[in-house]
Amino acid sequence: MPPEVLARFLPAWHGIGAESSSIDRLADVVFQLQGLALPASVIERDVLSARVRDYRPRLLDELVSMGEVVWAGRGSLGQQDGRVALIHGRLREQLARRPSFFPELYTAAGGGDTDAVLDALWDLVWAGEVTNDTFAPLRA
C-alpha cells in the first residue's frame, strides 16, 4: 500500500475524530485495541479521547466496573507510569459460563479480527487465568 494511501486509511480505520460519544463506541475502541500495551498516562489522554467524542473517564470506569473491560499491567515505565493493556471481558465471561473451544470464544468476543481475539486469549493465558485441556497449544 503506498504511504499516502495508508496515511489516509489509518485515521479512518481507527475512527480518529469519530462523532460517536456513546459507551458502545468506547467498547468498540477497546475491542479494536485490546491487548495493546500502552503507557497508562497516554491511554485516556491521547488514545481514547481521540476516538470517542467528549470522552470522559467515567465511561471507562463504567465498562471496567461492569466487567466488560479488564486492564492488566505490562511492566513499569519508571516510577510514575507503566504500560497497561485493556482486554475485553467477553472472553472471561464466556469462560466463566463454561469451558469453550475457540470458535465459541470467538463468537462470544463479538467476532471481528481473529488475531485480536487470539491476542486477548493469550494475554489471559500468560496472565495465568486461562488454561487448556491439552498441552498442545504450548507445544505449537
Binding site: 472471561r92 469462560l95 466463566a96 469451558p99 469453550s100 473451544f101 475457540f102 470464544l105 481473529t114 488475531d115 487470539l118 491476542d119 486469549l121 493469550w122 495465568g128 487465568e129 486461562v130 488454561t131 487448556n132 485441556d133 491439552t134 498442545a136 497449544p137 505449537a140
Partner: peptide, 11 residues
C-alpha cells in the same frame, strides 16, 4: 497462535 486445539477454561 495455535487455536484449533483443545478446550479453554479458567484456571
Amino acid at each position: 497462535h495455535p487455536r484449533a486445539v483443545g478446550r479453554w477454561s479458567l484456571t
